[in-house]
Design a binder for these strands. Structure first.
Lengths: 226, 226
DNA sequence: GCAAAAGTGTTTTCACTACACCCATGA
DNA sequence: TCATGGGTGTAGTGAAAACACTTTTGC
């Protein structure tokens, strides 16, 4: 149909974040193909005719982590003409938030993957470091006004866990009384009668994120901010 | 280098906003090529090997408006497999903010272009309507925390003009005393001793956006919000 | 002199901050 | 019984919201 128009290679790369109850982590892989075989890299793949970019990213994530229905969002395109010395490739970066504990261990081992702290990211191929930096920036910005933090926590979590996550995201200590006051004021959590005693003798109650309550909170014109 | 990998058509489409001192407007074009020749459309073009997406978008904007160095930002990709019935095309949408009065009139006329109010957008080809809606959402969000509004105003503008622009963006009346108080509190405008008498007998002083002051405002850790 | 838009301050309200102690429990 | 993290309330502060009148000037 569109004759004489040039076609190009197009790829997706995925920035995968996790949270291990102490730190936010980034999942990186030892690259298996040339150029740069053996170096640390994001996971990615070329796009073919049969999938949208989002679908392709979902597939990659499933292949490398064993997870489906991961939180996934487009970051931006990277299209400098010479960004890949092999050949011209336009890449679309996606960032994804995962629950570390749900990731199928074998998948990760099979691919020589490793979780890195954000302040210990090794050298990455091509412009992947730039992608990661942009993703971190976006994570920090977005977490402030959207409830994406819950994507990084297990289904049930304690308030201290949630607070710690936000302290990691903002790289800043938060006041526990004010934090509780704020999160409870939104009334978007459901308290369970279970306690997590893994970090204290007293134990902390477990909560679930209540999407219905959250949606009606937003529908009523309120703004979420943590 | 990357053998056996499929290549795809990739295009950019530009959402062009303007402000005519009364309304926010969208610049649309009568499409000249099949499919859908004669229908309203965003401007766009296929990407070739020699340009990054951003460069390609800049070129398109120059060709169709005669403007250089337009404010331009990537919106997102549109990659549904069947989004273009002609052939599979992945499109990257950019949104741009322009000063209507600077746009070269002949460029616009030559291409059968027209400025539409946001509530009078005609039917558009393909998924362009979705792109426009996403762009409007992004404009509203972004205007709140970044000083992008000034990109839509002439170099010199009055406070009532600026307020009207924000009222259009948010679709909401603002209190003039509070608006002035806030914008002046940031100390990011330079007052000129010129008055614009086009809208009142008394005349309103003209101001310029002072990027230096703005940058140091941000550098000092303050947040812009209007 | 009057119509029409520009410009100006004060009070109230509410959300954010800072801050210190008791509770429950396992060891 | 004590060490450890979980959980609670209040007073002070500062920013946002609400609100009405004076100024200027072309007609």
């Amino acid at each position: 149909m569109y004759k004489n128009k040039q076609k190009l290679l197009i790829a997706v790369d995925c920035i995968i974040f996790g949270f291990d109850s102490e730190q936010i982590k980034l999942l990186l892989f030892k690259r298996k193909v040339e150029p740069y075989s053996g170096n640390w890299s994001l996971v990615g793949a070329f796009i073919n005719e049969n999938l949208s970019l989002n679908e392709a990213a979902q597939e990659i994530l499933f292949e490398y982590t064993g997870l489906k229905d991961i939180y996934l969002e487009e970051l931006q395109t990277y299209s400098k003409v010479d960004r890949d010395p092999g050949e011209r490739v336009i890449s679309v970066a996606f960032f994804s938030l995962t629950r570390i504990n749900e990731i199928v261990e074998e998948s990760v081992e099979k691919f020589d993957a490793h979780w890195f702290n954000l302040d210990e990211i090794p050298e990455l191929i091509l412009d992947h470091r730039e992608m990661v930096d942009n993703a971190i920036t976006k994570l920090r910005q977005k977490a402030r006004y959207q409830p994406i933090g819950f994507e990084l926590l297990p289904e049930k979590f304690t308030i201290p866990q949630l607070q710690l996550l936000y302290e990691c995201i903002y790289n800043k200590k938060l006041d526990d009384r004010n934090f509780r006051k704020k999160i409870f004021s939104y009334d978007i959590l459901t308290k369970t009668d279970l306690k997590d005693k893994s970090t204290s003798k007293k134990g902390a109650f477990l909560y679930k994120f209540n999407k219905k309550k959250f949606d009606s909170f937003i529908a009523n014109g309120y703004n979420f901010e943590l």
